[in-house]
């Protein structure tokens, strides 16, 4: 419209119509569905001042629950990074019977309702379940311990690493790899020097997604966790328990703490990822 050399402009001009409508609707919808509700989460805990928030967050039970949720999510993310890389590797680099099926199965944890996964995993890993009995013979209890939580979180995080690493692995420059092979680099050397640096940013991103999903996971965990305070009780369950005890501020405080912690961790992962990308791109 006007010449825009100096004036600040909210939007660059173009021929396409519909911006006010689309933008207005998007912002309105986001406000109603995401912003206002989350604002409640951010504001509500402080209604009674600092003290109640502090009391909830310094409670050993809350700390244990947060530690379990974040700790188990981190371990699950690492396990998923390793195994996800292997699965992605198999899917990208090799042809074998049933490959398409395997590829399709990767998304199952994403599509399967979490409660369904929860009761199935519990049936498998309970002391009287098929795998649970086997582990029990070895003196290892899986279900109703933090190990059960870990299994559930590995399940829900599986697709994220595979699906972020897969396309990158497809794009790794094969010529560089072949050159390395011609130069006599062994399989391990090639993996370490050529493939890993290229895949690392995507791997980290996948880890971040798996982690974020696992931290907040509820449905698949509560059936298998045993929900023992201080030991196998996850933070989302504690939110529900606070709510059941009619402690809105406490529930919101734990929710807010989870949100802030996740945000910080994802931010750090993002920064590392940015560095990795810069380093691998000369």
């Amino acid at each position: 419209m006007t010449s825009a050399t100096a004036s600040w402009r909210f939007r660059e001009p173009g021929v396409l119509p519909g911006f006010p409508l689309a933008f207005g609707f998007t912002v309105f919808y986001l406000s109603v569905i995401v912003l206002i509700p989350l604002a409640a989460l951010v504001v509500r805990p402080w209604e009674g001042g600092w003290e109640p928030v502090w009391r909830v967050l310094s409670d050993p039970r809350t700390l244990a629950a947060l530690r379990l949720s974040f700790g188990a999510a981190a371990v699950a993310a690492v396990v998923n990074a390793v195994m996800g890389l292997i699965v992605a590797w198999a899917l990208v680099r090799y042809d074998f019977p049933g490959k398409r099926l395997l590829d399709a199965m990767v998304d199952l944890p994403f599509a399967l309702p979490t409660a369904v996964a929860g009761i199935a995993l519990t049936a498998i890993y309970a002391p009287n379940g098929p795998l649970g009995a086997w582990f029990a013979d070895m003196g290892l209890q899986i279900a109703y311990t933090p190990r059960g939580v870990l299994i559930a979180l590995i399940f829900v995080g599986l697709p994220f690493v595979v699906r972020t690493v897969q396309p990158v692995l497809e794009d790794v420059d094969r010529e560089v790899e072949e050159a390395a092979e011609t130069l006599g680099a062994g399989a391990f050397q090639r993996a370490r020097l050529v493939i890993l640096p290229a895949v690392a940013p995507a791997l980290l991103a996948g880890c971040g997604l798996a982690f974020a999903r696992a931290v907040g996971e509820y449905g698949s965990v509560i059936f298998i966790a045993g929900n023992m305070p201080l030991r196998s009780e996850i933070a989302p369950l504690l939110i529900i328990i606070q709510l059941e005890q009619f402690n809105y501020a406490g529930a919101a405080a734990i929710g807010l703490a989870m949100l802030v912690l996740s945000f910080i961790i994802l931010l750090i992962l993002n920064i590392i990822q940015g560095r990795l990308v810069r380093r691998s791109a000369p």
Binding site: T122, A126, P127, Y144, G226
Partner: peptide
């Protein structure tokens, strides 16, 4: 007490079905 469910039914399941 190794497991503390939120309701009586959950505890019964824990004891009978899960064998804890």
């Amino acid at each position: 007490v190794p497991v503390l469910d939120t309701g009586a039914r959950g505890s019964t399941t824990t004891f009978v079905q899960r064998g804890i």
